[in-house]
Amino acid sequence: MKILVCITHVPDTTSRIAFTDDNTKFDQAGVQFIIGPYDDYALARAVELKESLEATITVLHVGGAEADPTIRKALAIGADDAIRVNASAKDAFYVAQQIAAVARDKAYDMILMGRESIDYNGGQVHGMVGALLNIPSVSPVMKLDVESGVAKMVREIEGGTQQVEVPLPLVAGCQEPIAEWKIPNMRGIMSARSKPMEVLEPIDAEEGTSFVRFELPPAKAAIKMVDPNNVEELVNLLKVEAKVI
C-alpha cells in the first residue's frame, strides 16, 4: 500500500494577519509556519494506518525550499520519504496539476490531505486532483479505515454524518477527529534527517485565477456593555439598533 500525504506550509493559527507592498504581499514578520492543521490530521491518520496496511507514506509539498523544515517535521512524525515540487503555489488548480502529475507517475493507493489549507481556505485541491486522475474524491472525512481494498469513511455533512465506502484508489480531504495530532519524538526527529527528500521541477501547468490584492476587514466598532440585570436593553439594542432579531 502506498499512501501520499499532501501538506501545506501555512502561518500558525494564532498569527496576526497583515499585508505589505500595497496589500499585495503577506507580512511574514514574526510569523511561525506550520504543517496545515488539517493536513496534520491526514498525516497522523496515515501514520496510524501504516503498520496494519504495511504502507509506505510519502509526503508531498508544492512550494519553495522555505518549507523544507515543515517537510522534515512530517518525516519526523512518521512519513518515510518526501517530495517537494519546487514551484511557487500559484493557485489551487496549479497545485492540483502538480500533485496529479506526481501521483500519475507513482500510482498511490490513497492520496490524503487536509479538507482545506488555513491560508487560502479554498478546499479545492482534493476534488481537483480526484477529477484530474479520474478517481473518487471525498471530503471532509472524519474517519478512515481500509479493509480489503475498500476505504470505509465517515464524511461530515450539514447537521450530521454520512458513511461511505469507496474502492481504492481515492483522494480524501481530512479533518478532525480522524486522528490525534502526533508530536514528533526524538527518534523521529533524528531519523527524519536521513530520510530521502526528492526535489522535482514542476510540470507546465495553467492557472485558473490571477491575484489582484489582499484586504483586511474593517475594524470593529467599540463594544457596548449591557448590565446583566437589564437584559431587556440587550433585546432592544438587537432589535432597534442592530436590527438582527
Partner: peptide, 23 residues
C-alpha cells in the same frame, strides 16, 4: 458554500475547464 458544494465544485471546475473561486 456547503460540505457537498465544496466537494463538488472542484471536480466540476476540472470537468468543464472553469476557474474556481470558493468562499
Amino acid at each position: 458554500k456547503s460540505a457537498l458544494a465544496d466537494a463538488v465544485a472542484a471536480r466540476v471546475s476540472v470537468l468543464i475547464k472553469a476557474s474556481l473561486a470558493s468562499n
